[in-house]
Design a protein around this nucleic acid. Structure first.
Lengths: 348, 348
DNA sequence: CTGAAAGCGCTAACAC
DNA sequence: GTGTTAGCGCTTTCAG
């Protein structure tokens, strides 16, 4: 009948609070205390069977959905895990994301995806920011210095992928071993001058692969050339291809497939025959490696499995907090998948 | 000196509560009330400049990070947006995820990634579950029936991608227009028998593309054949290729690139020349479309932009809650990118 | 086994 | 402008 003065809405967006069913509603409906409802729902074994069933029935009937915020606030557990990737667009991560997502869902946890845009600074900042909003984090290809990682791992459950840091759990794909296989493969095809096409210097895996390459070459009394560093995008492939050609090598092992595919494209442009004039071996076996042209010989990495394992390790860690943080690291094997980008060394 | 009885730790994992800095610590340090700290941090303009600066300095010094759970609980805003995709592994989503992620970060929001595994049921379930944990959701290629979507949109801010539902905001990529361009292209190359290779029936976009195809063909007095439905994976391409060949068509327009690439592989296996014997046109221009063999003629979709726009619409919606939910839909143009998988129709 | 009560950390009226 | 006071919805001692 009259305008009430408090009718004016607040400047902040109205908060939707309609329709929310809380444990109190269930408590009221079933005539028990809210705390009992809470128990019945989150630790069913701690409550009498008949009350429990009555409560669960009521919950179902009212279409109750727990408020995760509230749960998190009072319990300290968020049932959420953050996955930090350096570039959500990199096909390498697709499998990782997928594997992690699967395993997480199975455990009823949510996945917070964070793109660090390949910046250590941003990575650190975002990590700091979500620290309290997640139960733990998975760091895929972290760009952070070892010391920073140690500090973070001390205050938050962490699992790294493809990055080995003392006292931090990690799953690493054994690409170095794969690189050795690749070198054997190339050497047996008659190659003597083989170059490593390096990725970002901040990448731990990059250095690990390079080391493996030198070792493998040394076994045959050969020394590996090295070009780079290059960015890990297909477009970096152009420069990389030219640099690779310049070394006079008859074969190149690249930091990853993205780079390798870029190189393949550039070589085609320049009319260089692969593998006739030069062989190219990639790393990871990402989506596309099997249908680029020529199909890429590469190190097949169990990426999806890595995602699953990382999650398992993290969840396991969460269960046993406080226990000795044994420097546990899982090594996943790779194998060489031979396709058409590698072949016999050209005659001199 | 003596063991205190409460020393026994609880059976649940210990909750880490060490080192947490709260607004109370800042309040104590600066000698103001906690509420003032809260204000100074979240609505700086509502507090005296010098107090504000003192508070901000203290916050920085103590390395304060707000507890998002608590913020969410009391404010109702979570600063988190969920992105539901039907398959996190589908390269189509990479760009979408990336675009969304970018825009979200710029606005200081987090991204909850949810994989619905292509199941309407699971989609509905998960949506229900996160309803209260996010400010809004972006539904990429939802499999939900229109009515369900309407219901959800009524109780939670929603933006759909490639799915048009009355009263639900959406961004749709104008592939139907692109399909028409594709048909013109093929017809002008002399093709008369053109088939549509269908994707999942539950996909809204699939039907939209098929309709566009028929219309475009009709304009030339032609009728399109249709094969399928097929799954949207490369492996479905084998069956699809055989079915396509069976129609006797000289060209095929496929639901998406993944399928098209699969078809290309199968055709190569069967020794069918593309585009000599048959032309193939894909849809989306995903990663890989430009380097498969032959490179795929396809409809280039602004996928990343779609992700950004979807987020913008959603955030905008959040700002103006309660306002008339005008059925706002943004149409993003596509264009035909001609590569080597399409060519003149073969002579009879 | 269940209830009462005290918060989790923060925001949002409402006073002053 | 700033302090006071209630909660947000849930978990978790602590009694009984």
């Amino acid at each position: 009948m009259c305008m009430n003065p408090e009718g004016a809405s607040s400047p902040r967006a109205a908060v939707r609070r309609e329709g929310r069913v809380t444990i109190n509603d269930i408590a009221a409906l079933t005539g028990v205390a809210a705390s009992t409802v809470s128990r019945a729902l989150s630790r069913p074994d701690r409550v009498n069977r008949v009350t429990r069933e009555r409560i669960q029935a009521a919950a179902r009937e009212l279409n109750y959905v727990p408020n995760t915020q509230a749960q998190a606030l009072s319990s300290g557990r968020t049932e959420t895990v953050a996955l930090l990737v350096s570039d959500a667009t990199n096909p390498f991560y697709f499998g990782l994301i997928r594997g992690a997502q699967q395993q997480l869902r199975a455990a009823g946890h949510a996945l917070l995806l964070i793109d660090t845009e390949d910046s250590a600074e941003l990575e650190n900042h975002l990590l700091h920011k979500v620290r309290r909003s997640v139960d733990g984090v998975i760091l895929a290809a972290s760009r952070l210095p070892e010391q920073t990682l140690s500090v973070i791992a001390a205050e938050l459950p962490v699992v790294t992928v493809n990055r080995n840091v003392p006292r931090v759990r990690s799953v690493v794909i054994d690409s170095p071993d794969g690189v050795m296989q690749a070198v054997e493969h190339l050497v047996s095809l008659g190659h003597r001058a083989i170059a490593y096409v390096a990725g970002p210097p901040s990448s731990w895996a990059n250095e690990a692969r390079w080391r493996a390459m030198r070792t493998a070459m040394a076994r045959h009394g050969l020394t590996a050339a090295r070009v780079g560093p290059f960015g890990v995008s297909r477009s970096s492939g152009s420069v990389a291809a030219d640099a690779l050609l310049n070394t006079g090598a008859t074969a190149g092992v690249t930091f990853n497939d993205l780079l390798a595919i870029g190189i393949l494209q550039r070589l085609a442009e320049r009319g260089v025959d692969v593998p006739g004039e030069i062989s190219v071996v990639g790393c990871d076996d990402i989506f596309g490696a099997d249908f680029c042209s020529p199909p890429l010989t590469t190190l097949t990495a169990p990426i999806e499995q890595a995602g699953r394992v990382a999650v398992s390790m993290l969840l396991d860690h969460l269960e046993h907090l406080g226990e000795t943080p044994s420097r546990q690291t899982v090594l996943l094997p790779t194998h060489l998948t031979i396709r058409q980008s590698s072949g016999p060394a050209p005659r001199r």
